[in-house]
């Protein structure tokens, strides 16, 4: 009888701890998602390309919401889904530095191409300003060098 009571007590503790664990990991999953979003937002501010990371974070959110949906009926399965969501956020966090680096490189390349474009545009502007009339008349004279100028009133 005493053993039976002990067994019941162990069983109650096991069930309640499983339930508490599932509940805790739901909160942990939400915290991990929030944290991953903060990192992702920072990466975007620093010029990172976060398109792929956003998709992954939405997958993590979907896993967490699936866990919430079955929390009441299957807490152990819910706990697994929460853990998968957390694992996914850890993968996202690991990719943040690379995202920032590639974003900065792309941003720098864009800026460099803009500077090059403006430089070419400026040089072309100066060349036109200083040499356009000379080149124009030089070409005009060359293209009209065979022309013979006659007096219009010669017949009179």
């Amino acid at each position: 009888m005493h053993k039976l009571g002990l067994l019941a007590l162990v069983l109650i503790i096991a069930i309640s701890s499983t339930s508490a664990y599932a509940q805790t990991t739901q909160a942990q999953a939400q915290a991990a998602i929030d944290n991953a979003f903060r990192n992702l937002s920072m990466a975007e501010q620093q010029g990172g390309n976060v398109t792929g990371l956003v998709s992954q974070l939405n997958n993590a959110i979907a896993l967490m919401e699936q866990g919430e949906a079955i929390q009441a009926v299957n807490p152990s399965r819910a706990s697994i889904l929460y853990q998968q969501a957390i694992n996914l956020t850890e993968q996202i966090n690991a990719q943040i530095p690379q995202s920032i680096a590639s974003g900065r490189a792309a941003s720098n390349a864009q800026l460099e191409s803009l500077i090059a474009y403006l430089t070419v545009l400026g040089v072309a502007g100066l060349l036109v300003y200083f040499y356009a009339d000379r080149i124009f008349w030089e070409l005009w004279i060359r293209s009209h060098k065979s022309w013979i100028v006659k007096r219009a009133d010669k017949k009179r």
Partner: peptide, 10 residues
């Protein structure tokens, strides 16, 4: 509740 992360103009 429904959570979603969206890029700009998404």
């Amino acid at each position: 509740s429904y959570q979603i992360v969206l890029l700009n103009n998404q």
